[in-house]
């Protein structure tokens, strides 16, 4: 009996390995597993002729063989038809066709960068506040220690409206507006749109976006400025990012500093983006000038604070390797769809 079973198994293995169509497979199924004439059915019938001991032993062997054949058969069926079920006759679908997708829209890269930067500061405990784009000379200049007829205004060429109203040239007016309305501690970031009459080219736009930050409390120092901005830069550009602070001049901060980060393109080795210096200028910052605190109604003998501001387009351009600022406002769908 055992001998016979081994022979069946060998024969089956030989035959099934040659199968290449569903029709052939069906022939083999009938030959081995057919209900009337199937070889397995026949050996089961033969069992009856055996003694009790041998019956139990052989029965077990037959069952094992049947299972083996059934499994091999199903496995082959999948290979041949590409289907998990061997049920013949049902129409097959081409599962390699693309799925039917409900397309999601895409956030604009500037929004993505705004959300990311604001989010980083919110994690640290800052709040997000906004302010008007149409401003007065007072908030845009005077309150920020930029007097009339002063050369420092040259850095802030401005679009004017009637009655000396203007389009804000930076988000800093919100500093004083917020201080006027609240008591320290002040912990805010200000995202917003700003305007400067710059002729448009690949790196200049008369309209662009900034994020401003302001932190005022008792005992806030330049060391804190460096601490917060270092954490920010590492979160935004990666933990290995190095940063350096250089003295600079801004009328609304004293002392003032510009922050550079190690070039995110070449990691500081020198490339065309960082003009071979290995460093990228990212933001301006400094300790809030006593005149600005005064304009906001805050006593500079008791409180101190720092402020910072950065251009969102510049950061997005560095982050994504975008080489022309005009692309942000052209809204070519092939551009907008690349960032989310």
């Amino acid at each position: 009996m055992k001998q016979k079973l081994l022979q069946i198994e060998k024969e089956f293995e030989c035959e099934i390995s040659k199968v290449s169509s569903i029709e052939q497979l069906e022939e083999i199924r009938v030959k081995y597993l057919g209900r009337k004439e199937g070889l397995i059915t026949i050996v089961f019938k033969d069992l009856a002729k055996l003694g009790a001991d041998e019956k139990a032993q052989s029965g077990k062997l037959i069952n094992e063989l049947k299972q083996k054949i059934t499994q091999a058969f199903e496995h082959k069926a999948i290979q041949v038809s590409g289907k998990t079920s061997a049920k013949a006759g049902k129409a097959a679908i081409d599962v390699s066709l693309p799925g039917i997708k409900r397309e999601l829209g895409h956030a604009h890269p500037l929004t993505i960068v705004f959300d990311e930067i604001c989010g980083l500061f919110v994690e640290m405990g800052f709040r997000v506040v906004e302010g008007p784009e149409i401003e007065t000379e007072y908030y845009n200049f005077e309150a920020l220690n930029i007097p009339l007829e002063h050369p420092s205004r040259e850095a802030f060429d401005t679009f004017y409206l009637e009655n000396k109203f203007l389009l804000r040239s930076h988000t800093s007016p919100v500093q004083v507006r917020f201080m006027e309305e609240s008591r320290p501690p002040v912990q805010i970031v200000v995202p917003g749109r700003v305007y400067r009459p710059d002729a448009t080219d690949a790196s200049h736009s008369y309209m662009f976006h900034q994020i401003e930050g302001l932190l005022i409390d008792k005992g806030i120092t330049f060391a804190h400025l460096k601490g917060v901005l270092t954490v920010f830069a590492k979160k935004l550009f990666g933990e290995k990012t190095k940063m350096r602070f250089r003295p600079h001049f801004f009328p609304f901060t004293e002392p003032s500093a510009e922050m550079d980060v190690s070039c995110i393109i070449c990691s500081g080795k020198g490339c065309s983006v960082c003009k071979q210096s290995g460093w990228l200028e990212i933001l301006g910052s400094g300790m809030v000038h006593p005149n600005v605190l005064k304009a906001g109604g805050i006593n500079s003998k008791v409180y101190s604070g720092f402020a910072f501001g950065m251009g969102v387009e510049r950061i997005a351009m560095l982050k994504y390797g975008i080489d022309d600022i005009r692309l942000f406002f052209e809204n070519d769908t092939r551009f907008v769809r690349q960032f989310s």
């Binding site: 709040r127 997000v128 501690p185 912990q187 409390d217 330049f222 060391a223 003295p247």
Partner: peptide
């Protein structure tokens, strides 16, 4: 500080106050 060196100032984190107002308006 400018002549002494900005780079010599050790960065440190301030303690920020938890605020009741929502972080986003």
């Amino acid at each position: 500080v400018r002549i002494w060196g900005y780079d010599k100032v050790e960065p440190s984190m301030p303690v920020l106050t938890a605020h009741v107002e929502p972080a986003y308006s």
